[in-house]
Structures are given as C-alpha cells and as structure tokens.
Design a protein around this nucleic acid. Structure first.
Lengths: 122, 122
DNA sequence: TTTAATCGACTACGGTTGTAAACAGTAGAT
DNA sequence: ATCTACTGTTTACAACCGTAGTCGATTAAA
C-alpha cells in the first residue's frame, strides 16, 4: 500500500514525476509562482514525502536530489480505486453518469472513452 | 461551493441520504456496528456537519432530527470534478484508462458505460 | 418526587495538513 | 580567515480529523 499523499504533497509529486531527480530549489521554481508557496514550504513538503519514503533522496554535495519512489501510474491506480469505492460503490459507471449529467463530458472525452472501450474489448 | 466533508462525515451523510430526518441515535444504529464507532462519535460528526450547514436540524422535544441540506448528486458531482481535475487534468478518459489497465473494469461496467455514452450522443 | 436514562454541548487529545520562520552547517567568495 | 548565500533540519502553529469522555439539562419511569 502506498502511503497517503496530501493535496499539497501531490503537487510536488507531479513535478518530480515530470522530471527527476531535482533539487528542492528546482522543484520550488516550478510551483512557487503558480501556487504562491514559499521555498520553505516546498522543502517541508519534500521532507515529509521523503519521511514517507515516497520520494528518495540522493546527496549531491551539500544538497539533495529528490526522485519519486512510487510510479505515478501505481499511485493513481490506488487512489482511483479508493475514490470509486468510497463514492460510487466501486463501480465506475455511476461516476461517468455523474460527470455526464453535470455536462462535464465533452464530445472529445466521449470519443476517447469509446476508443478505450473498443480497445479493451479486442 | 459545498463545504468539505471528511471521510467519516461522509459515512453519516450516506445514512441521511438514504433516509431522513433521523435522530442521532437512529443514525448511530446504522453505523456503530459496521464502523465500530461509539454513539458519541456519531453525535460529534453530526454536530460538525450541522456546523458546516450541510445537514439541518429540527427540534423534536429534547432531541434533534437531522436531514441533509445538500443533495447527494450535487455533492458527488463536486467531488468528482475536483478529483478528476486534480489527478487527471480534468479529463475522465485517463481515469477510465487507469481502471481499465488495472483490470478494474468488468465486462458489465464496459457495457454500462457504452450504454451511457450512447444515450449522451442521442 | 426522586431517580435513572437520554440529549445535545463542551472539552479533549493525538495525528495530519498547509504554511512557513528560525536555525545550523557548509561551500564558495573575498 | 571571514563572511555570505544556500542547504536541509527543527520548530511552530492554527485548522481539520478521528475518536470519544464528561457535563448539565430534561424527560420518562418508579
């Protein structure tokens, strides 16, 4: 089971999943402006992620290089499962139905999903 | 925007969405065994939900009757949106793809979703 | 009418989260 | 050799969460 990752921590993970290893400052450069966080905040989040052993650290002189230790796919699969279980009794069709009802599905979404399903069946 | 509802609170909401209004004890009867909570815990959760104005209270003698003030559909739509936004860049097809890859989609799920999409397009 | 059961309100308390300041070590500049 | 800038570490702190004990009021029972 993958450790729980909070919302703010998840932002950091996304950065590292895009490219790694990175220093704290490099990570910060990609989120500070967008999220309005301070460098200190980013460092705290990185430490917490490291403590949870969901990112790994590698010394590079006086600083650390951070890299994800869990794969994005693996993590997403886990949280998706939990989400669908908790809110939709484990079935994804009600979720699709909900998004559909709320007009959250674009024509593009629809064709993409159809394509996916076609592949699945073949 | 609907107030944030925590996991434990959500359990309570599900009970109230099924039937309402209910007294605290009645709500508790439906979750205490299953979740291993005490009656006090249920009362606390109900109070917090009431404080968030996501359930309403109606005096009935010395006790309260609790009812949901937000519709389940509305709430689910909101959290689904947030979830898909945060983890999948707002697009649901990657979510479907994930569940599919993890073999989480049964043949039944697939046909249900196809049916949904057919309806959408008509 | 005294008592026992029941209600909601208030209090508690350790853990997590978001957000960061303060601090201490160190490498590089002067 | 000193100072400065940059690192990670430690500490902070309020809000939220899970989980519940306690307390004062009230009602139903005896």
């Amino acid at each position: 089971m993958v450790e729980r990752i909070s919302d703010a921590e998840h932002e950091i993970m996304e950065v590292l999943w895009k490219r790694s290893p990175l220093t704290a400052t490099e990570v910060a450069d990609q989120v500070v402006d967008q999220k309005g966080w301070s460098l200190q905040t980013v460092k705290t989040l990185l430490s917490r992620l490291a403590a949870k052993t969901v990112v790994g650290t590698q010394r590079d002189g006086r600083r650390f290089l951070y890299s994800p230790l869990v794969e994005r796919d693996h993590y997403l699969a886990g949280v998706s499962r939990k989400f669908v279980d908790r809110l939709f009794g484990g079935k994804i069709s009600p979720l699709v139905a909900h998004l559909a009802e709320a007009d959250e599905l674009s024509a593009e979404d629809i064709s993409e999903i159809e394509e996916l399903l076609r592949e699945l069946k073949s």
